[in-house]
Design a protein around this nucleic acid. Sequence first.
DNA 1: CAGTATCCGTCATGATACTG
DNA 2: CAGTATCATGACGGATACTG
Lengths: 131, 131
Amino acid sequence: MATLSAAGRRDAESRDYNANLAECPGHQLLATLSDKWVTLVLSALADGPLRYSGISRIVAGASQKMLTQTLRKLERDGLVARSVTPSVPVRVDYELTALGESLLPVQRAIKTWAETHIEDVATAREAYDQR
Amino acid sequence: MATLSAAGRRDAESRDYNANLAECPGHQLLATLSDKWVTLVLSALADGPLRYSGISRIVAGASQKMLTQTLRKLERDGLVARSVTPSVPVRVDYELTALGESLLPVQRAIKTWAETHIEDVATAREAYDQR
DNA sequence: CAGTATCCGTCATGATACTG
DNA sequence: CAGTATCATGACGGATACTG
C-alpha cells in the first residue's frame, strides 16, 4: 500500500509530535516546574536545608505520597540532594543542589511576570465571561 | 467541639493550601505555560497572525477539540485575539495580543535554562537510575 | 521518623461523528 | 472553513493502612 488513510496520517503526525515534545528540553522543564508540589518544595528549600518532616510542615497540604514522589523526582533530576543520617530514628536532610538553585531565578522571572500582568489577565477574563 | 481530629486538621490545611494555590498568580501562569498545546500555539503565533487552519497545520498533532479549547483559553486570558470575518466560508484569524507577546521573553528564559542545563539533568538521571 | 504499598474516584485527553 | 457534541480510557492525585 502506497498511500495512507487520513486517519493513518494523523496518527503518524501525532506520534511524531508527541515524541518530539517528550524530548524537548523546554517542555520537560515546564512539566517539572508546573508541578504543584515541585514549586512548593523548591521554594521551601530555597531558604536552606530541611528535614522530611520540616518540608511536610511547610508544604502542609501535601500527602506523604505526593511529598515523597516529588522529592524523588527532584533528587533524580539533580535539583535536590538527599542525605541520610543512620541514627535511630533515621534523619533525612534535603537541600537544593547548585543546579536546583540555578532554577530559582527562572522561578522568580515567572513569578514577576505573573504578578505584573495578573490584573490584565483577570480583566480579560471578566470581559470574556460576561459576554 | 474544640478540637479537631488529625484527619480534620489535614483536611482543613489541604483546603487552605489548594485555595491559596488556585489564587496564586505564579501557579496560574505555570499551569497555563506548561500546557502542551498552549506552548505550541503560542510559538506558532509568535511569527505573526494565523488562521485556524494555519495553526492546525503547524501544530499538527493537536485534535480539533484540543486546539479549539486551547485557543479559547488563550483568548479568555487576553493572550490571543480572535477575529471573525463573516464571509462564506467564514474566516477566523488569531494573533498574539500585546499581553501575549510580553510572555514570549518568559518562554525564552525557560527555554534557555532548559537548553543550558538539560545535560546536567540527563547526567543526574543516569547516575540516579543505575544505582 | 521517614517512608512504602494499595485502592479508588475524577478529570483531562483524544477519537469520532456531526454542523452552520 | 471552523468549529460543537459525545463518549471511552487512562493517567494522576488523594486517602488509608502498614513498616524498618
